[in-house]
């Protein structure tokens, strides 16, 4: 049964991908891309990757779609020029694909428990997590502690993207350096549409709560800072869509957003530095509390909070940067 369902999902994935590439309406492509992400998330779920599935759904299907739509509103929605370099493109694409297929001839059987990945490193995490960290979700343990440095790097990737978009979209267009900005009417939202407004207002607190749950439940079940950040940001974006951007900025002003973005990253880094000051290595949580396992748990909660803050901050900033930009 699962086999069939898996094949069904994968087939749909391929079809969706082809549809995305062939469609010349960009709106349609973006929506299809969202569907693609949802299908991908479902496939991940089938492959026992609950955390990844949740992330892919929140980020791939949710945030990414919002960002694409936000950008499309500013750039136009139709693909004009025909596809170029068909032959060249096919040739260039064919080489790595053939190589990959060549590689398939020697790979371990799917799901085989004697594959190298299940022999080395991986099992150690499963085995040692209860002992060292004692939380149920091994993914969170690896993410937050064993490979916490990667995750710190990842937060800074998000941070970089955030300041990058802020930096790019704070530039005045060269062509109209001297003219005042024509911003979109910031009051306009969907407020005069009754149904979305009522349903939306009803939904927002729940989404928000769900985000908080995902944030703090990350050690026990799927979830954590990234997913939570994305969900919280989504609820606020929804609020902004319904009530108009200005109201949303009253709730969290852009100055506060900057503090959120920087503060989350600093919180994460700060936990690492504290570990250093207390005599451990960078990102060593054992030293945070007298009991190493308690220290680990505390560290993970703190850094996940840092992740959540930065992700929320960055996603909202990016959204506002797009939304606040006048269409040209």
């Amino acid at each position: 049964m699962i086999v069939l369902f898996g094949i069904f999902l994968l087939t749909l994935l391929v079809i969706t991908a082809l549809a995305i590439v062939r469609n010349d309406s960009l709106y349609a492509a973006v929506i299809l891309n969202g569907i693609f992400s949802l299908l991908m998330a479902a496939s991940f779920f089938l492959l026992d990757a609950a955390d990844v599935a949740l992330t892919e759904a929140a980020i791939g299907a949710g945030i990414s779609t919002v960002l694409f739509l936000g950008a499309l509103a500013l750039t136009g929605e139709l693909e004009k020029s025909p596809t170029k370099h068909r032959l060249l493109g096919t040739a260039v694409v064919a080489i790595p694909t053939l190589l990959i297929i060549f590689a398939f001839f020697d790979i371990p059987q799917f799901g085989a428990s004697d594959a190298p990945v299940h022999q080395h490193v991986g099992p150690w995490y499963i085995e040692k997590t209860p002992e060292f960290i004692d939380i149920p979700n091994a993914v969170t343990a690896v993410l937050g502690s064993f490979r916490g440095y990667d995750t710190l790097g990842e937060v800074f990737v998000v941070f970089t993207a955030g300041i990058g978009v802020l930096f790019l979209l704070s530039a005045r267009p060269l062509a109209r350096r001297n003219e005042p900005f024509v911003a979109r009417d910031p009051h306009k939202g969907l407020r005069h549409y009754l149904v979305p407004r009522v349903v939306g207002r009803f939904l927002i607190p729940f989404i928000f709560l769900f985000g908080l749950y995902v944030q703090f439940h990350g050690e026990y079940g799927p979830g954590g800072g990234f997913q939570a950040g994305a969900i919280v940001a989504a609820s606020l974006i929804l609020y902004s869509l319904l009530e108009g951007e200005r109201r949303c900025l009253v709730v969290i002003p852009s100055g506060a957003l900057r503090w959120l973005v920087a503060g989350g990253a600093l919180l994460y880094g700060g936990v690492g530095v504290v570990g250093m000051l207390l005599g451990g290595n960078f990102l060593d949580y054992n030293v945070l509390a007298s009991d190493p396992v308690k220290g680990q748990q505390m560290g993970i909660i703190l850094i996940e909070l840092g992740v959540g803050l930065t992700v929320t901050g960055v996603l909202l900033s990016v959204y506002h940067a797009f939304a606040g930009r006048g269409k040209l």
Partner: peptide, 22 residues
């Protein structure tokens, strides 16, 4: 199942969206 590839991909997804946003 092996948690390590999942952790890596969590990171990679976030890297991906960051690149897209930029």
């Amino acid at each position: 199942s092996n948690p390590l590839p999942q952790v890596l991909i969590l990171t990679a997804i976030v890297v991906g969206i960051s690149t897209t946003a930029l």
